[in-house]
Nucleic acid binder design. Sequence first.
RNA 1: GGAGGGGUGGCAGAGCGGUUGAAUGCGCCGGUCUUGAAAACCGGUGGGCCCGAGAGGGUCUCGCGGGUUCGAAUCCCGCCCCCUCCGCCA
Length: 418
Amino acid sequence: MLDLRLIRSDPDAVKAALARRGDVDAGAVDALLALDAERREATEAAETLRAQQKQDARAVAAAQKAGEDASAAIAAARELAEQVKARAAQAAEADRALQGALAALPNLPDPTAAPADEVVREVGEAWIPDFPAQDHLALAGPRVDMERGARLSGSRFAYLRGDLVFLELALVQWTLRTLAGHGFEPVIPPVLVREEALYGTGFLPDTEQQIYHLPADDLYLAGTSEVALASMHAGEVLAAEDLPLRYAGFSPCFRREAGTAGRDTRGIFRVHQFDKVEMFSFVHPGESQAEHERLLAIEEELLTALGVPYRVVNIAVDDLGASAAKKYDCEAWLPGQAQYRELTSTSNTTDFQARRLNVRFREAKGKPAVLHTLNGTAVAVGRTMIALMENGQQADGSVVLPEVLVPFGAPARLEPLG
RNA sequence: GGAGGGGUGGCAGAGCGGUUGAAUGCGCCGGUCUUGAAAACCGGUGGGCCCGAGAGGGUCUCGCGGGUUCGAAUCCCGCCCCCUCCGCCA
Protein backbone atom coordinates (compact mmCIF):
# COMPACT_ATOMS: atom_id res chain seq x y z
CA MET A 1 0.00 0.00 0.00
CA LEU A 2 1.29 3.40 -0.99
CA ASP A 3 1.26 6.40 1.29
CA LEU A 4 -1.88 8.35 0.43
CA ARG A 5 -0.29 11.55 1.65
CA LEU A 6 2.55 11.11 -0.79
CA ILE A 7 0.14 10.53 -3.65
CA ARG A 8 -1.70 13.70 -2.70
CA SER A 9 1.36 15.85 -2.23
CA ASP A 10 3.31 14.71 -5.27
CA PRO A 11 1.11 12.83 -7.71
CA ASP A 12 3.43 13.41 -10.65
CA ALA A 13 6.35 11.73 -8.94
CA VAL A 14 4.14 8.77 -8.02
CA LYS A 15 2.87 8.50 -11.59
CA ALA A 16 6.40 8.64 -12.97
CA ALA A 17 7.60 5.95 -10.56
CA LEU A 18 4.64 3.68 -11.29
CA ALA A 19 5.10 4.20 -15.02
CA ARG A 20 8.51 2.53 -14.73
CA ARG A 21 6.80 -0.70 -13.72
CA GLY A 22 4.79 -0.71 -16.90
CA ASP A 23 1.88 -2.63 -15.43
CA VAL A 24 -0.09 0.25 -13.97
CA ASP A 25 -2.95 1.96 -15.77
CA ALA A 26 -1.93 5.54 -16.53
CA GLY A 27 -5.13 7.02 -15.13
CA ALA A 28 -5.04 5.04 -11.89
CA VAL A 29 -3.47 7.79 -9.81
CA ASP A 30 -5.87 10.47 -11.01
CA ALA A 31 -8.80 8.16 -10.45
CA LEU A 32 -7.56 7.53 -6.96
CA LEU A 33 -7.20 11.22 -6.22
CA ALA A 34 -10.76 11.78 -7.38
CA LEU A 35 -11.95 9.08 -5.00
CA ASP A 36 -9.93 10.69 -2.25
CA ALA A 37 -11.56 14.06 -2.83
CA GLU A 38 -14.96 12.42 -2.84
CA ARG A 39 -14.25 10.62 0.38
CA ARG A 40 -13.04 13.74 2.13
CA GLU A 41 -16.09 15.68 1.13
CA ALA A 42 -18.43 12.94 2.27
CA THR A 43 -16.51 12.47 5.50
CA GLU A 44 -16.68 16.11 6.38
CA ALA A 45 -20.39 16.31 5.68
CA ALA A 46 -21.08 13.20 7.76
CA GLU A 47 -18.96 14.38 10.65
CA THR A 48 -20.54 17.81 10.77
CA LEU A 49 -23.98 16.25 10.98
CA ARG A 50 -22.77 13.79 13.53
CA ALA A 51 -21.44 16.57 15.74
CA GLN A 52 -24.86 18.21 15.62
CA GLN A 53 -26.50 14.91 16.48
CA LYS A 54 -24.35 14.40 19.54
CA GLN A 55 -25.10 17.89 20.72
CA ASP A 56 -28.85 17.24 20.30
CA ALA A 57 -28.64 14.00 22.21
CA ARG A 58 -27.00 15.82 25.07
CA ALA A 59 -29.78 18.40 24.98
CA VAL A 60 -32.38 15.65 25.21
CA ALA A 61 -30.62 14.15 28.19
CA ALA A 62 -30.39 17.51 29.91
CA ALA A 63 -34.07 18.26 29.29
CA GLN A 64 -35.18 14.90 30.65
CA LYS A 65 -32.98 15.31 33.67
CA ALA A 66 -34.61 18.67 34.34
CA GLY A 67 -37.99 16.98 34.12
CA GLU A 68 -38.98 18.78 30.92
CA ASP A 69 -40.83 17.29 27.99
CA ALA A 70 -38.25 16.28 25.39
CA SER A 71 -40.53 14.67 22.85
CA ALA A 72 -40.22 17.51 20.33
CA ALA A 73 -36.43 17.46 20.59
CA ILE A 74 -36.42 13.70 20.16
CA ALA A 75 -38.59 13.94 17.06
CA ALA A 76 -36.19 16.48 15.53
CA ALA A 77 -33.21 14.37 16.48
CA ARG A 78 -34.81 11.33 14.89
CA GLU A 79 -34.90 13.12 11.59
CA LEU A 80 -31.30 14.23 11.93
CA ALA A 81 -30.28 10.66 12.74
CA GLU A 82 -31.62 9.58 9.34
CA GLN A 83 -29.48 12.17 7.60
CA VAL A 84 -26.43 11.18 9.58
CA LYS A 85 -26.93 7.57 8.66
CA ALA A 86 -27.23 8.37 4.97
CA ARG A 87 -24.16 10.59 4.91
CA ALA A 88 -22.08 8.18 6.96
CA ALA A 89 -22.97 5.37 4.56
CA GLN A 90 -21.88 7.57 1.69
CA ALA A 91 -18.58 8.36 3.40
CA ALA A 92 -18.01 4.67 4.15
CA GLU A 93 -18.69 3.76 0.54
CA ALA A 94 -16.26 6.41 -0.69
CA ASP A 95 -13.63 5.13 1.70
CA ARG A 96 -14.12 1.55 0.56
CA ALA A 97 -13.64 2.61 -3.03
CA LEU A 98 -10.51 4.55 -2.13
CA GLN A 99 -9.04 1.67 -0.14
CA GLY A 100 -9.73 -0.68 -3.02
CA ALA A 101 -7.97 1.61 -5.48
CA LEU A 102 -5.06 2.05 -3.10
CA ALA A 103 -4.72 -1.70 -2.53
CA ALA A 104 -4.54 -2.30 -6.27
CA LEU A 105 -1.45 -0.13 -6.73
CA PRO A 106 1.94 -1.86 -6.51
CA ASN A 107 4.91 -0.45 -4.64
CA LEU A 108 6.97 2.39 -6.09
CA PRO A 109 10.20 1.03 -7.56
CA ASP A 110 13.51 2.07 -6.11
CA PRO A 111 15.40 4.39 -8.47
CA THR A 112 18.18 1.81 -8.60
CA ALA A 113 15.86 -1.02 -9.65
CA ALA A 114 17.07 -2.04 -13.09
CA PRO A 115 15.13 -1.14 -16.25
CA ALA A 116 15.92 -4.62 -17.57
CA ASP A 117 17.44 -7.64 -15.87
CA GLU A 118 21.01 -6.70 -15.13
CA VAL A 119 23.75 -9.10 -14.10
CA VAL A 120 25.53 -7.41 -11.21
CA ARG A 121 28.33 -9.96 -10.86
CA GLU A 122 29.27 -13.56 -11.45
CA VAL A 123 31.01 -15.53 -8.72
CA GLY A 124 32.61 -18.90 -9.34
CA GLU A 125 32.98 -20.65 -12.63
CA ALA A 126 30.14 -21.52 -14.98
CA TRP A 127 31.77 -24.85 -15.67
CA ILE A 128 31.00 -27.82 -17.85
CA PRO A 129 32.31 -31.21 -16.74
CA ASP A 130 34.82 -32.90 -19.01
CA PHE A 131 32.60 -35.96 -18.85
CA PRO A 132 28.94 -36.22 -19.85
CA ALA A 133 27.08 -34.00 -17.40
CA GLN A 134 24.08 -35.38 -15.57
CA ASP A 135 21.19 -33.43 -14.14
CA HIS A 136 20.06 -33.66 -10.54
CA LEU A 137 17.41 -36.27 -11.20
CA ALA A 138 19.87 -38.63 -12.82
CA LEU A 139 22.38 -38.04 -10.03
CA ALA A 140 19.79 -38.53 -7.28
CA GLY A 141 18.41 -41.70 -8.80
CA PRO A 142 15.76 -43.30 -6.60
CA ARG A 143 16.44 -40.75 -3.86
CA VAL A 144 14.08 -38.43 -5.74
CA ASP A 145 10.98 -40.52 -6.39
CA MET A 146 8.80 -38.63 -8.83
CA GLU A 147 6.70 -41.58 -9.97
CA ARG A 148 5.46 -42.46 -6.52
CA GLY A 149 5.06 -38.79 -5.65
CA ALA A 150 2.82 -38.34 -8.66
CA ARG A 151 0.88 -41.48 -7.84
CA LEU A 152 0.21 -40.14 -4.37
CA SER A 153 -0.46 -36.49 -5.04
CA GLY A 154 -0.18 -35.73 -8.74
CA SER A 155 2.49 -34.18 -10.88
CA ARG A 156 5.12 -31.94 -9.30
CA PHE A 157 5.13 -33.86 -6.03
CA ALA A 158 8.08 -35.98 -5.00
CA TYR A 159 9.25 -38.30 -2.30
CA LEU A 160 12.74 -37.41 -1.07
CA ARG A 161 14.47 -40.50 0.18
CA GLY A 162 17.52 -41.81 1.90
CA ASP A 163 20.69 -39.70 1.96
CA LEU A 164 18.89 -36.74 0.52
CA VAL A 165 16.84 -36.42 3.67
CA PHE A 166 19.96 -36.15 5.80
CA LEU A 167 21.35 -33.65 3.33
CA GLU A 168 18.22 -31.53 3.60
CA LEU A 169 18.15 -31.56 7.39
CA ALA A 170 21.85 -30.70 7.55
CA LEU A 171 21.39 -27.88 5.11
CA VAL A 172 18.55 -26.45 7.17
CA GLN A 173 20.37 -26.78 10.45
CA TRP A 174 23.57 -25.26 9.04
CA THR A 175 21.62 -22.36 7.52
CA LEU A 176 19.70 -21.58 10.69
CA ARG A 177 22.91 -21.67 12.72
CA THR A 178 24.65 -19.38 10.28
CA LEU A 179 21.76 -16.95 10.31
CA ALA A 180 21.57 -17.02 14.09
CA GLY A 181 25.17 -15.85 13.97
CA HIS A 182 23.97 -12.89 11.92
CA GLY A 183 21.32 -11.98 14.47
CA PHE A 184 18.34 -13.79 12.99
CA GLU A 185 15.98 -15.47 15.42
CA PRO A 186 14.93 -18.89 14.11
CA VAL A 187 11.18 -19.32 13.66
CA ILE A 188 8.99 -22.20 12.60
CA PRO A 189 5.76 -20.47 11.63
CA PRO A 190 2.28 -21.71 10.76
CA VAL A 191 1.94 -22.44 7.06
CA LEU A 192 -1.85 -22.20 6.99
CA VAL A 193 -2.74 -18.54 7.07
CA ARG A 194 -5.74 -16.28 6.88
CA GLU A 195 -6.53 -14.12 3.91
CA GLU A 196 -5.47 -10.95 5.76
CA ALA A 197 -1.89 -12.16 5.94
CA LEU A 198 -1.75 -12.66 2.18
CA TYR A 199 -3.35 -9.33 1.58
CA GLY A 200 -0.96 -7.69 4.00
CA THR A 201 2.09 -9.08 2.27
CA GLY A 202 0.82 -8.10 -1.17
CA PHE A 203 0.27 -11.62 -2.49
CA LEU A 204 -3.42 -10.79 -2.63
CA PRO A 205 -4.70 -9.26 -4.74
CA ASP A 206 -2.02 -10.24 -7.25
CA THR A 207 -1.06 -13.90 -7.23
CA GLU A 208 -4.31 -15.61 -6.21
CA GLN A 209 -3.99 -18.28 -8.87
CA GLN A 210 -0.73 -19.49 -7.30
CA ILE A 211 -2.12 -20.01 -3.81
CA TYR A 212 -3.74 -23.13 -2.40
CA HIS A 213 -6.99 -22.40 -0.61
CA LEU A 214 -8.79 -24.60 1.89
CA PRO A 215 -12.39 -23.44 1.61
CA ALA A 216 -13.69 -25.60 4.45
CA ASP A 217 -11.64 -23.56 6.88
CA ASP A 218 -11.04 -20.51 4.72
CA LEU A 219 -7.30 -20.81 5.16
CA TYR A 220 -4.53 -20.58 2.61
CA LEU A 221 -1.32 -22.58 2.29
CA ALA A 222 1.47 -20.04 2.28
CA GLY A 223 3.90 -20.09 -0.62
CA THR A 224 6.63 -18.75 1.65
CA SER A 225 7.15 -18.16 5.35
CA GLU A 226 7.53 -14.48 4.44
CA VAL A 227 3.75 -14.31 4.87
CA ALA A 228 3.85 -15.51 8.45
CA LEU A 229 7.01 -13.63 9.40
CA ALA A 230 5.75 -10.32 8.04
CA SER A 231 2.52 -10.80 9.95
CA MET A 232 4.28 -11.49 13.21
CA HIS A 233 4.21 -7.84 14.25
CA ALA A 234 1.03 -6.83 12.44
CA GLY A 235 -0.75 -4.06 14.29
CA GLU A 236 2.15 -3.47 16.64
CA VAL A 237 4.13 -0.35 17.43
CA LEU A 238 7.74 -1.40 17.96
CA ALA A 239 10.27 0.58 19.95
CA ALA A 240 12.86 2.17 17.67
CA GLU A 241 15.64 0.78 19.84
CA ASP A 242 14.39 -2.77 19.21
CA LEU A 243 15.02 -2.41 15.49
CA PRO A 244 16.19 -4.06 13.41
CA LEU A 245 14.27 -7.26 14.13
CA ARG A 246 15.52 -10.20 12.06
CA TYR A 247 13.89 -13.60 11.72
CA ALA A 248 14.83 -16.80 9.96
CA GLY A 249 11.73 -18.79 9.15
CA PHE A 250 11.86 -22.46 8.24
CA SER A 251 8.77 -23.96 6.68
CA PRO A 252 7.37 -25.94 3.83
CA CYS A 253 6.13 -23.76 0.97
CA PHE A 254 3.21 -24.50 -1.30
CA ARG A 255 2.70 -23.22 -4.82
CA ARG A 256 0.06 -24.18 -7.33
CA GLU A 257 2.34 -23.40 -10.29
CA ALA A 258 -0.70 -22.57 -12.36
CA GLY A 259 0.27 -21.63 -15.88
CA THR A 260 3.62 -23.41 -15.79
CA ALA A 261 2.44 -26.64 -17.36
CA GLY A 262 5.27 -28.22 -19.28
CA ARG A 263 7.95 -26.00 -17.76
CA ASP A 264 10.67 -27.51 -15.57
CA THR A 265 8.82 -30.76 -15.31
CA ARG A 266 11.91 -32.85 -14.66
CA GLY A 267 12.82 -33.53 -11.06
CA ILE A 268 12.25 -31.25 -8.11
CA PHE A 269 13.22 -27.91 -9.64
CA ARG A 270 9.61 -26.73 -9.76
CA VAL A 271 7.31 -28.60 -7.39
CA HIS A 272 4.17 -27.81 -5.45
CA GLN A 273 5.81 -28.30 -2.08
CA PHE A 274 9.32 -27.53 -0.91
CA ASP A 275 11.09 -26.45 2.23
CA LYS A 276 12.78 -23.11 2.61
CA VAL A 277 14.66 -21.02 5.15
CA GLU A 278 13.62 -17.42 4.70
CA MET A 279 15.14 -14.26 6.14
CA PHE A 280 12.88 -11.42 7.16
CA SER A 281 13.82 -8.00 8.57
CA PHE A 282 11.87 -5.19 10.17
CA VAL A 283 14.00 -2.05 9.95
CA HIS A 284 14.02 1.71 10.35
CA PRO A 285 12.96 3.30 7.03
CA GLY A 286 16.38 4.87 6.63
CA GLU A 287 18.04 1.48 6.88
CA SER A 288 16.19 -0.59 4.32
CA GLN A 289 18.57 -0.07 1.42
CA ALA A 290 21.55 -1.07 3.55
CA GLU A 291 19.59 -4.04 4.90
CA HIS A 292 18.77 -5.14 1.37
CA GLU A 293 22.47 -5.25 0.52
CA ARG A 294 23.03 -7.09 3.78
CA LEU A 295 20.51 -9.79 2.92
CA LEU A 296 22.07 -10.17 -0.50
CA ALA A 297 25.51 -10.47 1.09
CA ILE A 298 24.24 -13.26 3.36
CA GLU A 299 22.73 -15.11 0.42
CA GLU A 300 26.07 -14.86 -1.35
CA GLU A 301 27.94 -15.95 1.75
CA LEU A 302 25.81 -19.09 1.94
CA LEU A 303 26.22 -19.92 -1.75
CA THR A 304 29.94 -19.34 -1.53
CA ALA A 305 30.27 -21.53 1.54
CA LEU A 306 28.42 -24.27 -0.33
CA GLY A 307 30.71 -23.90 -3.32
CA VAL A 308 27.90 -23.10 -5.74
CA PRO A 309 28.82 -20.83 -8.68
CA TYR A 310 26.25 -18.09 -9.05
CA ARG A 311 25.48 -14.70 -10.46
CA VAL A 312 23.54 -11.81 -8.97
CA VAL A 313 20.79 -10.22 -11.02
CA ASN A 314 19.18 -6.86 -10.36
CA ILE A 315 15.66 -7.76 -11.43
CA ALA A 316 13.92 -5.64 -14.04
CA VAL A 317 11.52 -3.13 -12.62
CA ASP A 318 8.64 -4.45 -14.72
CA ASP A 319 9.21 -7.93 -13.31
CA LEU A 320 8.90 -7.01 -9.65
CA GLY A 321 6.10 -8.42 -7.50
CA ALA A 322 3.53 -5.94 -6.26
CA SER A 323 5.23 -5.39 -2.92
CA ALA A 324 8.87 -5.07 -4.03
CA ALA A 325 10.63 -1.78 -4.68
CA LYS A 326 13.76 -3.61 -5.70
CA LYS A 327 14.77 -7.22 -6.02
CA TYR A 328 17.98 -9.18 -6.43
CA ASP A 329 18.01 -12.80 -7.50
CA CYS A 330 20.93 -15.12 -7.02
CA GLU A 331 21.03 -17.58 -9.87
CA ALA A 332 23.07 -20.71 -9.41
CA TRP A 333 25.00 -22.29 -12.21
CA LEU A 334 23.60 -25.73 -12.95
CA PRO A 335 26.00 -27.82 -15.07
CA GLY A 336 23.25 -30.38 -15.68
CA GLN A 337 21.18 -27.72 -17.42
CA ALA A 338 24.18 -25.66 -18.56
CA GLN A 339 22.48 -22.51 -17.39
CA TYR A 340 21.97 -20.18 -14.44
CA ARG A 341 18.71 -20.74 -12.56
CA GLU A 342 17.08 -18.78 -9.77
CA LEU A 343 17.99 -20.07 -6.35
CA THR A 344 17.38 -17.19 -4.01
CA SER A 345 15.69 -13.84 -4.14
CA THR A 346 15.72 -10.83 -1.86
CA SER A 347 13.31 -7.90 -1.97
CA ASN A 348 13.12 -4.54 -0.31
CA THR A 349 9.41 -4.01 0.18
CA THR A 350 10.00 -0.63 1.89
CA ASP A 351 6.81 0.49 3.64
CA PHE A 352 4.44 -1.38 1.31
CA GLN A 353 3.80 -4.44 3.46
CA ALA A 354 4.29 -2.59 6.73
CA ARG A 355 1.54 -0.13 5.87
CA ARG A 356 -0.87 -2.89 4.89
CA LEU A 357 -0.06 -4.88 8.00
CA ASN A 358 0.06 -1.76 10.14
CA VAL A 359 3.52 -2.40 11.56
CA ARG A 360 4.95 0.78 13.04
CA PHE A 361 7.80 1.93 15.23
CA ARG A 362 8.24 4.82 17.58
CA GLU A 363 11.24 6.93 18.46
CA ALA A 364 11.60 7.79 22.15
CA LYS A 365 9.21 10.73 21.95
CA GLY A 366 7.92 10.64 18.41
CA LYS A 367 4.68 9.57 16.84
CA PRO A 368 4.37 6.04 15.51
CA ALA A 369 5.60 5.77 11.92
CA VAL A 370 5.49 2.98 9.36
CA LEU A 371 8.71 0.98 9.21
CA HIS A 372 10.27 -0.97 6.35
CA THR A 373 10.34 -4.71 5.78
CA LEU A 374 12.59 -6.91 3.66
CA ASN A 375 12.74 -10.56 2.81
CA GLY A 376 15.28 -12.87 1.30
CA THR A 377 15.69 -16.55 0.63
CA ALA A 378 18.44 -18.04 2.73
CA VAL A 379 18.13 -21.55 1.36
CA ALA A 380 15.44 -22.95 -0.91
CA VAL A 381 16.22 -26.51 0.05
CA GLY A 382 15.15 -28.38 -3.08
CA ARG A 383 16.86 -26.09 -5.54
CA THR A 384 19.94 -25.85 -3.36
CA MET A 385 20.24 -29.62 -3.31
CA ILE A 386 19.92 -29.57 -7.09
CA ALA A 387 22.82 -27.09 -7.27
CA LEU A 388 24.88 -29.17 -4.84
CA MET A 389 24.32 -32.36 -6.77
CA GLU A 390 24.98 -30.93 -10.19
CA ASN A 391 28.05 -28.96 -9.13
CA GLY A 392 29.44 -31.77 -7.02
CA GLN A 393 29.05 -34.45 -9.66
CA GLN A 394 31.95 -36.69 -10.52
CA ALA A 395 32.76 -38.71 -13.62
CA ASP A 396 31.55 -41.90 -11.94
CA GLY A 397 28.12 -40.42 -11.19
CA SER A 398 28.81 -39.85 -7.51
CA VAL A 399 28.43 -36.45 -5.87
CA VAL A 400 30.86 -34.75 -3.52
CA LEU A 401 28.98 -32.62 -1.02
CA PRO A 402 30.24 -29.53 0.85
CA GLU A 403 32.31 -30.29 3.90
CA VAL A 404 30.61 -27.56 5.92
CA LEU A 405 27.46 -29.67 5.99
CA VAL A 406 29.03 -32.87 7.22
CA PRO A 407 29.18 -31.82 10.90
CA PHE A 408 25.43 -31.18 10.62
CA GLY A 409 24.72 -34.72 9.54
CA ALA A 410 25.01 -34.51 5.77
CA PRO A 411 26.70 -37.35 3.90
CA ALA A 412 30.13 -36.38 2.52
CA ARG A 413 29.12 -37.81 -0.83
CA LEU A 414 26.22 -39.40 -2.64
CA GLU A 415 27.03 -42.70 -4.29
CA PRO A 416 25.47 -43.44 -7.66
CA LEU A 417 22.31 -45.50 -7.29
CA GLY A 418 20.65 -47.15 -10.28
C1' G B 1 -17.01 -31.99 18.72
C1' G B 2 -20.05 -30.75 23.55
C1' A B 3 -20.82 -27.29 28.07
C1' G B 4 -19.58 -22.80 30.36
C1' G B 5 -16.73 -18.01 31.34
C1' G B 6 -14.36 -13.82 29.28
C1' G B 7 -12.08 -9.83 25.79
C1' U B 8 -12.11 -1.93 28.52
C1' G B 9 -6.11 2.76 27.69
C1' G B 10 1.44 0.51 28.44
C1' C B 11 -0.36 -2.92 32.65
C1' A B 12 -4.06 -4.05 36.46
C1' G B 13 -9.06 -2.90 36.98
C1' A B 14 -14.14 -0.08 37.57
C1' G B 15 -18.24 1.21 34.64
C1' C B 16 -23.12 -2.30 32.22
C1' G B 17 -28.39 3.03 28.15
C1' G B 18 -27.44 9.61 29.04
C1' U B 19 -22.36 15.35 28.54
C1' U B 20 -17.62 8.42 29.81
C1' G B 21 -12.20 8.77 25.56
C1' A B 22 -13.68 6.19 29.86
C1' A B 23 -13.04 6.12 37.65
C1' U B 24 -8.97 4.19 40.53
C1' G B 25 -4.08 2.10 41.10
C1' C B 26 0.56 1.06 38.79
C1' G B 27 3.90 2.41 34.96
C1' C B 28 5.94 6.33 31.94
C1' C B 29 7.25 11.78 30.98
C1' G B 30 7.96 16.80 33.08
C1' G B 31 8.33 19.72 37.56
C1' U B 32 8.85 20.93 43.07
C1' C B 33 11.81 19.19 47.11
C1' U B 34 17.09 16.88 47.67
C1' U B 35 24.36 17.26 47.61
C1' G B 36 22.35 13.10 44.51
C1' A B 37 18.68 9.35 44.54
C1' A B 38 14.33 7.46 46.76
C1' A B 39 9.86 8.96 49.03
C1' A B 40 6.23 12.74 48.95
C1' C B 41 3.62 16.38 46.23
C1' C B 42 1.99 18.97 41.47
C1' G B 43 1.10 18.51 36.24
C1' G B 44 1.02 15.55 31.89
C1' U B 45 0.52 10.77 29.44
C1' G B 46 -3.28 6.07 23.34
C1' G B 47 -4.23 5.67 18.11
C1' G B 48 -6.72 6.58 13.11
C1' C B 49 -9.22 9.99 9.94
C1' C B 50 -11.14 15.11 8.42
C1' C B 51 -10.64 20.63 8.53
C1' G B 52 -6.65 24.17 9.66
C1' A B 53 -0.28 27.62 7.90
C1' G B 54 -0.52 27.00 13.09
C1' A B 55 -2.97 27.32 17.52
C1' G B 56 -6.79 24.50 17.58
C1' G B 57 -11.48 22.19 16.25
C1' G B 58 -14.41 17.88 14.63
C1' U B 59 -15.09 12.66 14.23
C1' C B 60 -14.09 7.47 14.96
C1' U B 61 -11.93 3.97 18.29
C1' C B 62 -13.76 0.02 25.14
C1' G B 63 -11.57 -7.56 20.29
C1' C B 64 -13.72 -6.89 14.82
C1' G B 65 -18.16 -5.97 11.77
C1' G B 66 -23.34 -4.98 11.59
C1' G B 67 -28.04 -3.56 14.15
C1' U B 68 -31.58 -1.24 17.88
C1' U B 69 -32.00 3.90 20.03
C1' C B 70 -32.79 10.97 20.10
C1' G B 71 -28.33 8.80 22.60
C1' A B 72 -24.35 2.42 23.10
C1' A B 73 -18.19 0.53 26.44
C1' U B 74 -23.19 -0.63 28.28
C1' C B 75 -28.89 -3.89 24.63
C1' C B 76 -29.25 -7.42 20.02
C1' C B 77 -26.87 -10.36 15.80
C1' G B 78 -22.48 -12.37 13.19
C1' C B 79 -17.23 -13.17 13.32
C1' C B 80 -12.28 -13.44 15.75
C1' C B 81 -9.47 -14.49 20.03
C1' C B 82 -8.47 -16.20 25.18
C1' C B 83 -9.70 -19.32 29.51
C1' U B 84 -12.13 -23.72 32.25
C1' C B 85 -14.38 -28.67 32.04
C1' C B 86 -15.68 -33.11 29.01
C1' G B 87 -14.64 -35.93 24.49
C1' C B 88 -11.03 -36.97 20.61
C1' C B 89 -5.95 -36.74 19.30
C1' A B 90 0.32 -36.21 17.15
